[in-house]
Amino acid sequence: MAESLERFLEDTECVDWTDMLVTRETAQAITGCVTDEEKVKAIFEFVRDDISNAMNIDSVALPWTASTTIRAMIGNDDAKAMVLAAMVRALKIPAGFCYQRLTVVDDDSEGHYLHCYNAVYLDGNWVKLDASGRLGAKDVRFCKIEPDLAFIPREVYGECNVPGIFAEPYAPSVDVIRNAGSISDIIFGLPDSIDVEPDIKE
């Protein structure tokens, strides 16, 4: 298991946890925390509550790396997940990415997109965390026992949880955010399926 977790600790272009801004915000967020669980919970609440979701406020800021998202204090679901992963990895705790296939609107008339959230390896188990804070999801809480996610997939509309945990955010999703000129480009441009195998199968 130790070798398979190495990829979940890497510093990458998107999850740039060695950036000085990321390490500084991490240290500030975990002030007063002692255990790894306390530290991850504090980071989760910082990302959930303090970094605005660009999809909620029609922002023109479209950062796509952890450091630029912290600098702007705004980002879409994927960007916020990159921040959480980067800050947790800065503590040498493995963190990865999970996905749900969700509808773009209330039904499936406008198709689907991939919603990104996190998995963090705590006390020998993967803990699912969704700090996106979308559409009133601020009440979604840190929970080690059962995933408390912002969205519950509705099978009738073709929504589902994508199985597995990925060490890096899905590249086609990152490309959409990187090249987007507007929120609409992201909403209608994100892929609706994943064609690569997860690093951790569930």
Results as ranks from 00 to 15, higher is better:
E3D: 09
I74A: 07
D130K: 01
H115C: 04
I194M: 12
N179S: 09
L9P: 10
V140R: 10
D199G: 14
D130C: 03
D49F: 06
L122G: 12
D19H: 13
E202V: 02
V88H: 07
F166S: 02
A66I: 01
V40I: 14
R178V: 02
V40E: 10
Q100A: 06
G189E: 07
Y170E: 14
I152Q: 11
M55Q: 12
K80A: 01
I43H: 09
I187K: 15
M87S: 11
P169T: 02
W17H: 12
E3S: 08
D139L: 14
P163G: 00
V140L: 03
E202T: 02
M55T: 10
I200H: 11
K39P: 02
H112S: 04
I145V: 08
Q100W: 08
E168R: 13
L5Y: 10
E146L: 12
V47I: 01
D192Y: 01
D36M: 00
F188H: 13
D185M: 10
Q28I: 06
N53M: 14
C98H: 00
I183R: 15
D148Q: 04
S59M: 09
M73S: 07
M20P: 14
K41P: 06
D49W: 02
L190R: 02
E202I: 00
E25T: 03
L9C: 14
Q100L: 05
L102R: 10
S184H: 14
I200W: 13
W126Y: 08
V34C: 02
L122P: 05
S193F: 03
A79S: 15
R7L: 15
S132T: 11
S109V: 08
F142H: 13
T69V: 03
C160D: 07
E13S: 10
W17E: 09
V176S: 05
N76K: 07
K80D: 06
V88E: 09
D107R: 04
A137L: 00
F188K: 11
G136V: 01
V15M: 15
R178A: 10
A2P: 08
C143V: 05
G75E: 13
A150W: 03
S52H: 12
D192G: 09
R154Y: 00
L5W: 10
V174N: 08
C116L: 10
H115F: 07
T103N: 08
